[in-house]
Design a protein around this nucleic acid. Structure first.
Lengths: 107, 107
DNA sequence: ACAAACCATAACCGAATGGTTATGAATTTG
DNA sequence: CAAATTCATAACCATTCGGTTATGGTTTGT
């Protein structure tokens, strides 16, 4: 029973792949071509990384003619946020206070 | 220039290794022997995983006679928390509201 | 129609990585 | 002292994984 966080940690572990996701998150929709220009790796490798991100639901694509546009789906990070809450709360007072506040204002 | 989150993502990507960290976080101090009993892998492998966690500052150890006690250092997760804030805020209203509240009450 | 652009897939390669067993060092215990 | 316990390290193996080049399928442009 692989936890939901498993795939996310694994997929985001690679710097190149994570950089692609970060860029899609910050800059929005991008074609494979545009991503390749600044990825530092070949176009096939960019496609592979995008496939991995797609399997983890971290990105989505729509084809537009001959080009494929990818965009980030940061909601897919939810399991990681949960994990951070579970294991971050053991030390971070800020986290604790946030959790309390959250419960009080959003029951 | 590898980001601070790089090592953490990489180290936590392996399920066995992450499980060890989770257990140390939830259950506190543990010897290698105790960890091995429920790790599902051999004792040398547990030691290796602990070494990796130690390099990432996620655990610390103190020797007590012939046994080595390890304990979690969840503060080392801080760079991951920051990363989640940077890329989680793009979707999670709860996160945004919490961040705002935090700033207002903790200037 | 033809050439060029965009992308995905296949085939392949070397390095990194998770796993094992074997061994040795240090400490307790009988 | 001898035997057993605890742990780390070494040597080794199989697999995974990030990377490449080569290729082919669509779609656009001339």
């Amino acid at each position: 029973m692989p936890s939901a966080a498993d795939n996310l940690f694994r997929v985001l572990a690679d710097p190149t792949r994570r950089a692609i996701f970060e860029r899609l998150t910050r800059e929005g929709d991008q074609t494979v071509h545009a991503l390749t220009e600044r990825a530092g790796v070949s176009q096939p490798m960019v496609s592979k990384h995008l496939s991995a991100l797609k399997r983890a639901r971290l990105v989505r694509n729509r084809r537009k003619g001959r080009e494929t546009h990818y965009h980030a789906r940061p909601e897919a990070l939810a399991p990681l946020v949960d994990w951070m809450r579970d294991y971050g709360r053991f030390w971070n007072d800020r986290f604790d206070r946030l959790e309390d506040l959250l419960k009080r204002m959003d029951p």
